[in-house]
Design a binder for these strands. Structure first.
Lengths: 156, 156
DNA sequence: ATCTTCACGTCAACTATGTTGACTTGAGGA
DNA sequence: TCCTCAAGTCAACATAGTTGACGTGAAGAT
């Protein structure tokens, strides 16, 4: 009995003909992104959250007392897009907002203990994948990887 | 006058405090993915398409006469999710389907000339970003990058 | 030869994440 | 004091994915 369907959640790096030399690298980037985020997304789903929530938690963890405006800027999404996921995080008390009495104009956001815990666990999943890969190739390989990604990332 | 908002489409790799050693790598992966796909997505938008359409075109280009079932399997999405974007591509005559007379059971998909042109241009944008990065770090760096990404990608 | 199964494909309804537009509110400068 | 404009919220919509239900026809079993 041949199994027709995709039981694999992580979808097996398919065997596609290569039309260009760089197609392999193209596909590696795609599957690499999926590979890094897969375990974290699965964990997040168990607590009823997903990628955008994690990104919000990640940034707030590293910029306590950030305003909503700055958060929007860092995340690169519209304030309306931020509204719902952030609203959920506030409602679930993973993020708290305080308004400083004298600076009443903007909310200052920070993580609660529960929020911090979830952020850490989700990010740990991602870091674990990276750590294993870096371990395998050694420090020089890791440095090369970072150099390549730096050029690609700054390709605005 | 300080500029409040995000004029930058590619969102400047923000200055976040690093809570862990691997946070830098984490962020590089995120911005790297965005960096590679940004130009391609902008091009695709000009022709009224987006990322899922590109993925479909990419696979069909490398597996001519693929059936819908196999396409689903390679893409790792449900057949219902494939339906609308593929429908658009068929309607716009970027993809064509033929049914072989004797094997009437499944449609065999292939790109039209127009579809092939769009697929090439979009993929070219992505490959160009990679090519530049590889050029900068040289062949050994590129090999190391591929090795790291291979481990990450296979992290099912 | 017929019946039954089951992959293939489509349609409908829903969820989540994003967009733009319109609006309220309140801080702070003229 | 007035007026502007960033901050924030609400509503409507687009897109990409999900699950469920169902029609259809090829192919295997009796």
């Amino acid at each position: 009995m041949q199994k027709t369907a995709s039981q694999v959640p992580g979808l097996h790096r398919a065997s596609l003909r290569k039309l260009h030399e760089l197609d392999t690298a193209l596909e590696l980037m795609y599957y690499g992104w999926r590979g890094m985020t897969l375990a974290a997304d699965q964990y997040l789903a168990t607590v009823g959250l997903s990628r955008p929530h994690h990104r919000i938690l990640y940034v707030i963890a590293r910029r306590p007392d950030i305003s909503i405006g700055s958060l929007i800027e860092v995340l690169g999404i519209s304030k309306q897009a931020l509204n719902r996921p952030l609203g959920l995080l506030l409602e679930r008390k993973l993020v708290a907002a305080k308004r400083s009495p004298e600076q009443h104009r903007s909310k200052l956001l920070h993580l609660t203990a529960a929020g911090r815990r979830i952020e850490q666990r989700a990010s740990d999943h991602e870091r674990e994948v990276l750590r294993e890969a870096f371990d395998r190739v050694g420090a020089p390989g890791a440095a090369a990887w970072m150099a390549v990604m730096g050029v690609i990332a700054d390709n605005n």
